[in-house]
Simulated assay, not measured.
Amino acid sequence: MRLTVPRVALLLVGVVLLAYAFAVAPAAQHGGPTAAPPDRVARAAPDAVVTADAAAVTTIGPAAGLFPPAGKAFFGVMTDKGPYDFTAVDRFAAAAKRQPQVMLFGAGWASATFDRMLFDRIKARGMLPMLGWEPWDYRVDEAARKQKKLTVRQIDRVRSTQPYYRLSRIVNGDFDSYLRSWAEGVKSLGYPVAIRFAHEMNGDWYPWCEKANGNRPGEYVQAWRHVHDLFERAGATNVIWVWSPNARWSKTTGNLADLYPGDDYVDWVGTTGYYGTGTWSDYTSFDAIFGPTIAEIRTFSRRPMVVTETGATDAGGRKAQWIRDTFRALPKHRDVIGLIWFEVDKELDWRIAASPAASKAFADSVAAPRYDVHWSPELLPRTERDE
Rank of each mutant, 00 (worst) to 15 (best):
R196H: 10
A35Y: 13
P207E: 04
Q162F: 00
W268L: 03
L379T: 00
Y178V: 04
A363W: 02
R159D: 03
T151G: 04
N213R: 00
P38L: 06
V140P: 13
A55R: 13
V269P: 03
W249Y: 08
W241S: 10
W322K: 09
F86D: 06
I289V: 11
I289W: 00
V221D: 02
F231M: 14
L259P: 09
L10T: 05
T313E: 10
I323P: 11
F119L: 02
V306S: 01
P331C: 09
V366K: 00
H30A: 13
H228F: 15
K81S: 10
W322C: 08
S281F: 14
K148G: 10
L11T: 09
E378H: 06
L131D: 00
S244A: 12
M305F: 15
T383R: 01
T151N: 03
D349T: 01
A21T: 14
V77C: 02
D137F: 07
W208Y: 10
E142Y: 06
E384W: 05
N238T: 09
W375C: 01
A42Q: 08
W205F: 12
Y274G: 03
W322A: 03
S285F: 11
T271R: 00
A257E: 13
A198G: 14
E232L: 08
F67Y: 03
E384P: 09
L380M: 11
A64T: 08
D345T: 01
R196E: 11
E309Y: 10
P331D: 12
W375P: 03
P46F: 04
Y178L: 05
R233N: 13
E184V: 04
G316Y: 08
V24T: 14
S365P: 08
L167D: 07
D85G: 09
W350V: 03
I297N: 01
V5W: 10
I155D: 05
A234G: 11
P62Q: 13
S359G: 12
V5N: 12
R2S: 10
D263T: 12
W224K: 05
F105D: 07
A329Y: 08
V193K: 02
T87M: 07
K346F: 04
A88W: 06
D345G: 04
R121Y: 09
A183H: 02
F75E: 04
T252K: 13
E343V: 11
T87S: 10
I337D: 00
K211S: 10
A55Q: 15
D282C: 07
I60K: 14
T293H: 01
A312H: 12
A23N: 15
E384I: 02
P26D: 13
V269F: 03
F114H: 00
Y283F: 15
D156R: 06
I352C: 07
A329I: 00
R328D: 14
E347G: 09
I155M: 06
G185T: 01
M78D: 12
R351S: 06
E134V: 13
G106F: 06
P331S: 10
E210D: 09
A198F: 14
P83V: 14
E343D: 11
S365N: 08
